[in-house]
């Protein structure tokens, strides 16, 4: 089971950048999602920011299902700037890949609990680190896409865009950099030095 916890209110408010569509995922029974808290917060976000729509659906970790669910909202998304996702890390990554021209942000941090982990990975994996990095890295997870789980950029082991550990594996930081470059959002990487917190008893 996973617990998806809302990030700090101020952090979420800073993610409503321009015309923003909010995407909620209430798919898995195995993911605890703070529904009431999220509804209250999203009311406030709508009152104070330019929220164009609130879409609540399920299983956004399945790319085909996500595409189908977003079909009737694509005009709104295309005309907007940001998609703010309330889901586990896999859902955010799937949305970021599908909406690759948009800023896709995570409003949540995901923690693991023992037991079944929900309907998830087709292509992406969530490290359940409890301090979601996806908002800094273009929606590509540095914990699971980088062999060393580096959070401050590419190591010296990338060759032809592949990882030193496995020549068939893409370098996660190469993917992150190229995506942000394409979006002209490389300044996103100018954050102060990040240090993982392994002290949280809930985080993996």
């Amino acid at each position: 089971m996973l617990i998806t916890q809302l990030k700090q209110k101020e952090a979420i408010e800073s993610l409503v950048q321009g015309k923003t569509l909010i995407l909620n995922c209430h798919g898995c029974k195995e993911v605890h999602f703070p529904e009431e808290e999220a509804v209250e917060l999203q009311k406030e976000l709508s009152a104070n920011g330019d929220v164009t729509a609130i879409v609540t659906t399920d299983y956004i970790c399945n790319p085909d299902h996500l595409a189908l669910q977003l079909k009737k909202h694509m005009d709104t998304i295309s005309a907007g700037d940001t998609v703010l996702v309330f889901s586990c890390g896999v859902g955010v990554q799937t949305a970021a890949k599908y909406l690759e021209d948009k800023k896709v942000f995570s409003a949540c941090d995901t923690y693991p609990l023992p037991g079944f982990q929900g309907v998830t990975p087709l292509e992406f994996d969530c490290g359940q680190c409890g301090e979601c990095y996806l908002n800094y890295t273009g929606g590509i997870c540095p914990i699971t896409a980088c062999s060393k789980s580096l959070v401050n950029g590419q190591c010296g082991g990338s060759k032809n865009g592949k990882c030193e550990v496995d020549k068939d594996m893409d370098c996660g930081w190469e993917l992150i950099y190229r995506k942000l470059e394409k979006q002209k959002k490389l300044d996103t990487l100018n954050y102060p030095t990040k240090i993982r917190n392994y002290g949280n008893p809930d985080a993996e």
Partner: peptide, 11 residues
């Protein structure tokens, strides 16, 4: 001389 020298410069 990395093939991703721009990524290396960012680091």
């Amino acid at each position: 001389c990395s093939d991703s020298v721009d990524v290396q410069l960012a680091k």
